[in-house]
Nucleic acid binder design. Structure first.
Lengths: 246, 246
DNA sequence: CGAGCACTTGATCGCTTTCAATAGCTGTGG
DNA sequence: CCACAGCTATTGAAAGCGATCAAGTGCTCG
């Protein structure tokens, strides 16, 4: 993590410049954002926000992965979102946080104090418009996940998760989407279970089964090779390849 | 259904005027909307939009209930949203529909041709801002539902659904939220199953069980009395009363 | 009166959970 | 250097919950 370097970084050099909430901003608007932004870093496993807390800031994930989770009184937890670089955290116009946010890997956040950001958004349609677009995308993702949670088998759930991670990796990697994909799992078995609505034992079993059937290859616990994405998509129960390949 | 009357209705008299996407519009803006809007009615069971179709319009549900569903090739379906009066249908800035939309009860929609609406939105922050707000609310609802789908038991799922319907009824009814609630189920057992990620047999069994245990009373198949909302909320597994009562 | 539909109820099956033991890895301290 | 604690992950055996298969009820409508 190069947080110290980042804390002086200009928005123009920002790695998520073209995908985050500020994607549509012009030079003047960026200048304003520059004035109210600050960076924060979190180590893997650390909480970022507690559900119910007053939100003093909103912001974007610059690097690393964070998770959004809900917990019931008896301890059952469900991950309701995975936050990747450029994803937005916090809801303008609301006081308290609705979910727990935690760093899954080491995370760097670009934060804005909430009030100034809200004021800036009021008079900057570029930001409001981009935020609407991002929120609609998240809503689509959440609804896609509802199908996974409600109707897919354990094996299909695992395959769906691996496919999503592979796809996201493809968008960040030069070379992009190919039929053979190699990536590292950013989640523990328990985090995968929380995301998929399963137990960690079932996750482990199904990963072993996919490995035995040659759908995936494992090196260590986290390094995954998918020799044939098409087969993985079939296992996920998605129609055709979900648009993964051209 | 009084669609003929509605087709001449002015926005000022609209029953969802203060909650829909046009909630923040001033008189001039309403005038513009008035010019591009038209009403359409759908009978219970009819499709409104097919997933993948080109969307020619967007719009608001004026009365009745519509459902948003996803379907896998093998026929498994998951409802991903319930559209109530004032809810918005369609996504500005996207060509095709992502989900099937169908009328669950008889439905009246206030429609806008997509292009003119998008243009109007570009120069009307009041609309864009309200749409962002509504989308954020829907995202919260979707995430709450992810917890239901991923982690709750069949009995808790049914209780959660009944609680949500009761709560929505309370917001529309004079008198509002009380500890004793009476309402009609707007969904068939099958639709409830699709929403909850269950089979219709399990839905039926759990409703019978809740009845046997005195959590609910049934008159016919659809008319529900909840003698004690607190008990229902407990069955749903929600912390305390979910803010239902003051 | 019979067809069609929504719903209920029963019996059985099987997938996922639960409970439990073990393996592999990393870091710490004797 | 090895022992041991602590953590993540794997694997096995048994239990339970919801799905599946199947029959039957009650209602509406032609």
């Amino acid at each position: 993590m190069n947080a110290p370097a980042l804390s002086q970084a200009r928005c123009g050099d920002c790695p998520i410049r073209h995908r985050a909430v500020c994607a549509r901003c012009n030079a003047d608007e960026l200048e304003e954002l520059d004035g109210i932004k600050y960076y924060r870093t979190y180590e893997a496993g650390q909480p970022i926000i507690w559900s119910g807390d007053v939100m003093n800031f909103v912001g974007s994930v610059v690097s690393g992965i964070a998770s959004l989770t809900q917990t019931m009184e008896d301890g059952r937890t469900q991950m309701v979102g995975l936050l990747l670089p450029s994803d937005f955290v916090g809801r303008p116009g609301r006081e308290g946080a609705a979910y727990d946010v935690a760093a899954t890997t080491d995370v760097v956040m670009c934060c804005f104090r909430k009030k100034p950001f809200e004021e800036l958004m009021e008079r900057t349609p570029h930001i409001a418009h981009r935020l609407l677009e991002m929120t609609l995308d998240e809503l689509d993702a959440a609804r896609e996940w509802m199908l996974v949670l409600g109707r897919k088998t354990a094996r299909e759930k695992i395959a769906s998760l691996l496919a999503i991670i592979a796809r996201r990796d493809a968008t960040l990697t030069p070379g992009g989407a190919t039929n053979r994909m190699v990536f590292d799992l950013p989640l523990t078995r328990e985090a995968m279970a929380d995301y998929l609505g399963l137990t960690l034992e079932t996750v482990s079993r199904q990963i072993s089964a996919l490995k035995k059937d040659g759908i995936i290859e494992l090196e260590g616990k986290r390094h995954v090779t998918v020799p044939d994405m098409r087969r993985l998509m079939e296992e996920a129960g998605d129609d055709s390849d979900g648009g993964f390949l051209g």
